[in-house]
């Protein structure tokens, strides 16, 4: 059985690990959902899936470019370039969103979940408007978001490089990249929706009390589901052998 080979088992484990990274990423990103779009909650005003997948797919592009430019690039390098791409994407999203919150909606950036910002140490509760859950993207949320998207991009790069290792000897380089990329995208979507159900739509980032409560069970689910996807991915390679 090809699946019981130690290298294959390690690769399935790596795909499970990258699922866990993507799942963790979703918890780090300050997702505000519809309330944040109306500046009534802290975070970026769109859904978990959109943010995680948006930054993750940019990470996928940068990591695949790395692998294309240097096919012998080490896995760490591919993951790092994925992390960089995803972080730049989310940081620019948050920066542009921050400009709109500050100069368009005119709200002070404040988190309702903590009394003092853990990074800057500034008071938060004074600035939270009555009846809201905070507004804008405070420093801790911004930093947490950059770290989170980095994890997601690294996870995407990891799956991609594992799959390319399986598919590129079987079909042409372009086709292998297409198949591996599409599969990574599928795993990405599954793993960004699962934790978004866990957090129930909105989370502020690493300082949110929700973070500690939901991370273990979400990560467990993602690891199991991603490993299942890993088994499927390796069997696909078996189907493509001429």
């Amino acid at each position: 059985m090809v699946l019981l080979d130690p290298t294959t088992l390690i690769d399935i484990g790596l795909i499970g690990l990258s699922g866990a990274l993507i799942c963790l990423a979703v918890h780090f990103i300050p997702v505000g959902g519809a309330p944040a779009a109306m500046a009534q909650a802290t975070g970026i005003g769109t859904g978990t899936v959109e943010l995680a997948a948006g930054s993750g797919l940019v990470g996928l592009i940068t990591s695949s470019y790395m692998l294309h430019a240097d096919p012998s690039a080490s896995m760490a390098l591919v993951m790092a370039s994925g992390a960089l791409g995803a972080s730049v994407m989310l940081a620019s999203t948050m920066l542009a969103g921050g400009f709109i919150y500050a100069y368009g909606v005119a709200v002070p950036f404040a988190s309702a979940q903590v009394k003092k910002d853990p990074i800057t140490g500034q008071r938060q509760d004074n600035y939270v408007s009555k009846g809201t859950q905070g507004q804008g993207i405070p420093t801790i949320c911004f930093v947490s978001g950059v770290v989170g998207s980095g994890l997601g991009g690294a996870g995407g790069g990891l799956i991609y490089s594992v799959l390319m290792h399986y598919y590129s000897p079987l079909i042409s380089a372009t086709s292998a990249a297409a198949v591996a990329g599409v599969f990574t995208m599928g795993v990405f979507y599954v793993n960004s929706v699962i934790p978004s159900y866990g957090v129930g739509g909105t989370i502020e980032g690493v300082h949110d009390p929700k973070f500690r409560r939901v991370v273990p069970k979400d990560v467990f689910t993602s690891v199991v589901v991603s490993m299942l996807c890993g088994v499927v991915a390796i069997l696909i390679a078996g189907g493509m052998t001429p």
Partner: peptide
């Protein structure tokens, strides 16, 4: 809690 689009994407 996450909007309908999430389920279509998963």
């Amino acid at each position: 809690g996450t909007g309908v689009p999430s389920i279509g994407q998963i």
